[in-house]
């Protein structure tokens, strides 16, 4: 069985599901079922008295691992505060650190994210930092005790796919933590591509939430992630140009007396 050991747990589904941006939260149970996701992300927000929404948690199967994110945080300090509140609310000890100060592209602030990771890992959280794929920072995340590294494929919600392919590949090669591609994956084929490269998992939200039929799209992503994973495990052949015709490199070993 190909289990993903992560954050002190073992899970079999490598598709993590985000729950934002759905036209109606009531479709979420069907989406979770179709996606077979075991890890589901949620956010924490102030209650709006004029527009009291329903409680998101009621839609999430109790067997799922909840991964609250720190969206809305602009500094490490705010992210830490949100993480602590989520844990106190009974969400378990997983947290996705998301610190964004850039409203134009919604790109994460790696520096603040690293600071929050250091603090929360020391407090016993399983920390999943969402970050721009930078090898040096990823190493620092690992050294700070992160449970995984979550590089973005392209900006949040852009559905542009794996624009950061080469950078993510380097993280996969160099960082011995699960690499989870988060953000930007717009199609099942892109999820498969990330998995073929050796990503440990992918986190998909917008592409499923805004699909014509979210549950059907969740099913498609589930299959794509499995296919990509299986392709990775089977060992891809190396893509090569045509073999160069040249004299043998080891002929000298035979030519001697």
């Amino acid at each position: 069985m190909d289990l993903l050991k992560i954050g002190g747990k073992e899970i079999s589904s490598r598709l993590f599901l985000g729950t934002g941006k759905f036209a109606s939260d009531s479709v979420i149970p069907d989406v979770i079922r179709a996606s077979q996701a075991e890890v589901v992300t949620v956010a924490l927000r102030r209650v709006d008295f004029d527009d009291p929404q329903e409680n998101m948690l009621q839609y999430i199967n109790k067997e799922c691992i909840l991964m609250p994110n720190t969206s809305g945080a602009r500094t490490a300090e705010e992210a830490v505060k949100i993480a602590r509140i989520a844990r106190a609310a009974g969400c378990g000890n997983w947290v996705k650190i998301e610190v964004i100060r850039d409203n134009k592209y919604l790109l994460p602030d790696n520096y603040e994210t690293l600071k929050a990771t250091e603090i929360l890992a020391a407090e016993g959280f399983a920390v999943f930092p969402y970050m721009s794929p930078d090898l040096m920072v990823a190493r620092q995340m690992r050294d700070a005790g992160a449970a995984a590294v979550m590089p973005l494929g392209s900006p949040i919600g852009s559905n542009r796919g794996l624009k950061t392919r080469e950078m993510v590949r380097i993280l996969i090669d160099e960082i011995d933590l699960p690499i989870i591609v988060d953000a930007g994956i717009g199609k099942p084929s892109e999820a498969a591509e990330a998995m073929e490269m050796g990503a440990a998992a992918v986190l998909v939200n917008t592409a499923i939430a805004v699909a014509g039929d979210p549950a059907a799209m969740a099913g498609a992503f589930s299959l794509a992630v499995k296919a990509g994973r299986q392709g990775f495990l089977a060992g891809l052949g190396e893509a090569r140009p045509y073999a160069e015709a040249s004299s043998p490199l080891t002929g000298f070993l035979r030519d001697r007396d």
Binding site: G18, D25, T41, R45, N55, L203
Partner: peptide, 10 residues
């Protein structure tokens, strides 16, 4: 007083 709740998020 901060009154918070879980909402959808990615």
């Amino acid at each position: 007083l901060e009154i918070l709740r879980f909402v959808g998020g990615g």
